[in-house]
């Protein structure tokens, strides 16, 4: 910026930003505070984030008396499987949608997009019936199919868009250099599509990691619960164990935060890809 703005404007700008930061950070700090309080003290007039008599007891209880680790294992298993399946399908499917011109291509792309326009709650009943008739109640396989199906439309479009930004001349050069179509894809296009693949993977993972509605239909056995279901189970009809709930909620968000931090550099190049035409 060549022209310097007046000091009061800078100050006002920062005050406004701080205000919004406070709004977004306060609930998280509140949850942290609740998780550190002994017993089940949800409503406290104490404003201290870390209470004077803070304790790890909620966290310890999570790992000892509650099946938290099992749930986390379940969630990781399902989310990683969805990511693997979703990325594999989107990487290949997006490529063919970007590179080949075949009958029904436009219609297919459009119909894939249309599936994204129905809210999940609207689909609950038909979904439950389908799951029941397919005998997929209480099975991770059922979850895997439904999560992949929900994440795939976005992933396909994302990968197709990313391939569109990679010049076809690169593959043509590779084919003249002696590659088959497949090895040109493997050796040239795929390595260049890594940022797009990372975003797609992240999206698939997050879709599965935080999903509640479908999981609530499919899984009924507490042994098979994923984290969102497990969390909800603390919210019993008679009394909610707020301390456990808060501690678990924080722990659940840690992997997501870590992944975002780790993948940040890819995210930036991935999200801006295609914005500038070469």
């Amino acid at each position: 910026m060549s022209t310097r703005e007046p000091r009061w404007l800078t100050l006002a700008r920062h005050l406004l930003l701080l205000f919004f930061v406070a709004i977004s950070v306060y609930p998280v700090l509140n949850v942290l505070s609740i998780s550190l309080r002994p017993q089940n003290r949800l409503r406290s007039t104490d404003l201290a984030i870390i209470p004077a008599d803070w304790t790890w007891s909620n966290y310890i209880q999570l790992f000892t008396t509650q099946p938290f680790l099992t749930w986390m294992g379940n969630s990781l298993l399902v989310s990683l499987a969805v990511t693997l399946l979703g990325v594999s399908l989107a990487t290949i499917g997006g490529y063919s949608l970007s590179r080949y011109r075949f009958a029904g291509r436009k219609g297919f792309l459009l119909s894939v997009l249309v599936t994204q326009m129905f809210p999940a709650t609207m689909l609950m009943l038909p979904l439950y019936l389908m799951i029941a008739r397919l005998n997929l109640i209480n099975s991770f396989f059922g979850l895997l199919i439904f999560y992949t199906a929900t994440a795939l439309p976005f992933c396909l479009w994302q990968m197709k868009g990313f391939y569109d930004t990679i010049p076809t001349a690169l593959e043509e050069a590779a084919r003249i250099d002696g590659c088959s179509r497949w090895s040109a894809f493997r050796n040239v296009t795929l390595p260049l599509a890594v940022p797009g693949i990372v975003i797609t993977a992240l999206f698939s993972f997050m879709t599965a990691w935080s999903e509640y509605l479908v999981a609530a239909q499919v899984l009924q056995d507490a042994e098979l619960f994923t984290l969102p279901l497990g969390l909800k189970s603390f919210q019993a009809t008679m009394s909610t164990q707020w301390g456990l709930y808060a501690a678990a909620a924080l722990l659940v968000s840690i992997p997501a935060v870590l992944i975002f931090m780790f993948l940040c550099p890819y995210l930036v190049s991935g999200l801006t890809a295609g914005s500038v035409k070469e």
Binding site: P167, A169, L170, E172, A173, A174, R175, I176, D177, G178, C179, S180, V188, P191, L192, E278
Partner: peptide, 20 residues
């Protein structure tokens, strides 16, 4: 024949160097 089987070499307008 596939492009690779024709034993030709091509220089493209935008060079098409492999960026990675």
């Amino acid at each position: 024949l596939e492009p690779g089987e024709r034993d030709l070499a091509m220089v493209f307008q935008n060079y098409a160097l492999y960026p990675h």
